[in-house]
Amino acid sequence: MIQFAGIALILIGIYGLMTTKHMIKLIIALNVMELGANIFIISIGFVAHGLAPIYTADLPNQAFSFVDPLPQAMVLTAIVIGFGVSALGLVVAQNIYKKHGTYDLSEIGGEE
């Protein structure tokens, strides 16, 4: 189910990118999309009855399996990068607001 939710979040983010012209809402939609992609990548590595990929003192003696640690390593860094990207986007949006006095993309541009 969580895999399905990840795909749905990506699609909802694309819908938000297509339908809004408010710059901050565009960045919010981008964040939703990023969240969906992260959830989907993590859910690919999930193994039924798997354990978190950490060796501890109280692991079971019988056979067990870890979930796939490779997607987790990818997403771990991607989250921090996503924060940097959205901060940069917001700063660009603020500069556009300072110059044009509006957050609406359809009111910017044209010759005046």
Binding site: I39, I42, F46, G50, Q72, S86
Partner: peptide
């Protein structure tokens, strides 16, 4: 969701960044 997928590292990172810093920004 990350915790349910047995990814504690990612869950910790998302808890700090996603709900704290991104909201602040």
């Amino acid at each position: 969701a990350f915790a349910l997928m047995r990814a504690p590292d990612v869950a910790l990172t998302e808890a700090v960044i996603g709900s704290g810093l991104v909201t602040f920004v």
